[in-house]
Design a protein around this nucleic acid. Structure first.
Lengths: 337, 337
DNA sequence: CTGAAAGCGCTTACAG
DNA sequence: CTGAAAGCGCTTACAG
């Protein structure tokens, strides 16, 4: 690869001049510009991003910290969210560095990524990385709530508690109190938030939460979300035991519906189904069309990216944003008679 | 941010020593190592990836060049493929830089990304970027075939022509010759390859290809793939005009099935449906389960990544790999009586 | 409008 | 096992 020096020499100018021709940060005369460009082209010269980054201390790259488990694929939720992040960064001229590398405990191996800021997915409890980014002076925005919540941390999240409170109210108003809840993995903060929200709905309406049977997704037990729904219903359904079922995602609901067909259960006649969906493209195509919650995953991503772009200009900016989820009523739930 | 100099001074050693403590490239005595590490921790020092990259001329980052259209979301195919790429790179210790920035004609704006190699999606005809990467000495692997095909270019691809030849033979053997083909966008090389393959199937069996009606997806006409399938069938179906339908993806087939339900067409009784699928997770959940082609999108990604890793070690390596697609027969096609 | 030179924060061959 | 110094390829304040 030709360097700026090669071009400077071949064009008979200083490298400062070559630099200016490419960066346009200071005006260079027409003839000189043309000569430099021509020489550069002949030599196949392109400025080195790395060298420039070192000099200006900016990379125009934003990082997305997202652990990827060995066996599983990205969920519809993650994909949509990433889509939102990419779209926004792309619009603002940033590239995205996907860091899916597993974490290292060896402090010696923890090198700073070449990024101007990072978005971190699903922070864990007391996540030590948050402090580390802070220490490094790298702007950070979380997707998902930090635990514990702190004033100085920027993040975007759904209000999962409120969302399942609404779902609970909706079902209770339809007369459903015997509910099977196919929740997500127990170790996720969302799972807890959702349970609390549902419990609150029951409490508010004076119903006993005992009528709710909660199950959790587990990667060991279930091959995939659809199987989770299918197997769960097949195994534990008895007529009249549940009148409604809340699923983690629409994929889970897909499995539930398949099982229901095989068991001869009419949806929504005998059983109402509602999904706390992660991937809304499917819901409207199912038969019956699935009533679900629209999480706006893409918007979560977009908003996180927007906040990060602001923070990369001014580290002191802090913004916390709750993205509204909305209940989309379709055809899979019915008033209990 | 503390630099290597700060640490060196505070620890009373040279920066070469600090460097060695972190890179482990030469042995440093136990006591010195500990002192350096302690000082580094106190100062919140982490090595700068950018500076190191400049010095060693390697970034351990691979690029994924993938244009993202303003309005559309990634397809299931793209997502799975990216998944494969990420997984393989992650395994090999590389990070992934997603470059979705639109292309610039201004040569002045074309800066080299901080990557050791790149994977490029869907190369266009006579794609000028291929030559450019070559010129820059950056290892390149394509996903999708280059046009024209050249000996020195590495790529992985499906054999789309052969794949639709197989599908054609399968349908013809079932007695279907009046076929509606809901193909992908006309401007993609896959669309052409597929048509050729299907035509070949007809020719081989001595059937007239005139019985095939080909349509192309168009972003302007169709809101999304599902709508494409739905609208197409609604608009042009007349009893006995077609006995089988080949769809671009399973999403398109989903729309076809919805339209068929509304029109009272029995699948597969009256109409056989088969998808040249991009996203196989759906096919098995549909009713009836969709017969489709498994493209192994994830494997395309994995293989491309593997080849790139090799090329990043030795630029001269060239590998071209065809990933076998296989027909997965489920329930949506039936022998024509 | 252009040049000379210091600086960005690392690595590494050379010397001891 | 450790240090001093040159080098990686850019940018930029200073000077003219």
């Amino acid at each position: 690869m030709a360097t700026i020096d090669d071009v400077a020499k071949a064009a008979g100018v200083s490298k400062g001049t070559v630099s200016s021709v490419f960066s346009k940060k200071r005006p260079i005369s027409r003839p000189v510009t043309e000569r430099v460009l021509e020489v550069a082209k002949g030599l196949g010269y392109y400025p080195s991003h790395v060298a420039r980054s070192l000099a200006i201390k900016k990379t125009m790259i934003a990082g997305l910290k997202m652990p990827i488990s060995k066996d599983s694929v990205m969920s519809g939720f993650e994909i949509q969210m990433i889509n939102g992040v990419i779209r926004e960064f792309s619009k603002q001229g940033y590239r995205l560095l996907l860091d899916t590398l597993p974490e290292h405990d060896d402090p010696t191996q923890f090198s700073i990524d070449p990024v101007d800021g990072v978005i971190m997915l699903n922070p864990r409890k007391q996540d030590p990385r948050i402090e580390r980014y802070n220490q490094m002076g790298i702007p950070l925005v979380l997707i998902g709530r930090p635990d514990p919540i702190e004033e100085q941390i920027s993040y975007v999240d759904n209000d999962n508690r409120h969302l399942s409170l609404q779902v609970g109210q909706y079902l209770i108003n339809l007369g459903h109190t015997a509910i099977l809840f196919l929740n997500s993995s127990a170790d996720m903060t969302v799972a807890i938030d959702r349970e609390n929200g549902l419990a609150e709905a029951f409490q508010q309406s004076g119903q006993s939460y005992d009528q709710v049977h909660v199950m959790n997704y587990s990667r060991r037990q279930h091959a995939n979300p659809t199987e989770y729904g299918y197997v769960s219903l097949k195994n534990i359904y008895e007529p009249n035991r549940f009148t409604a079922i809340i699923t983690d995602t629409d994929r889970v609901a897909l499995g539930v519906m398949r099982a229901a067909r095989e068991l001869g259960i009419d949806i929504p006649g005998e059983l109402s189904v509602i999904a706390l969906s992660n991937d809304a493209t499917l819901a409207q195509e199912m038969t019956p069309a699935l009533t679900s919650v629209e999480l706006s995953a893409e918007m979560l991503g977009t908003e996180a990216a927007k906040i990060l772009v602001e923070k990369m200009k001014d580290v002191d900016i802090v913004e916390q944003k709750i993205i509204e989820a909305k209940l989309v009523i379709r055809e899979s739930c019915r008033l209990l008679k």
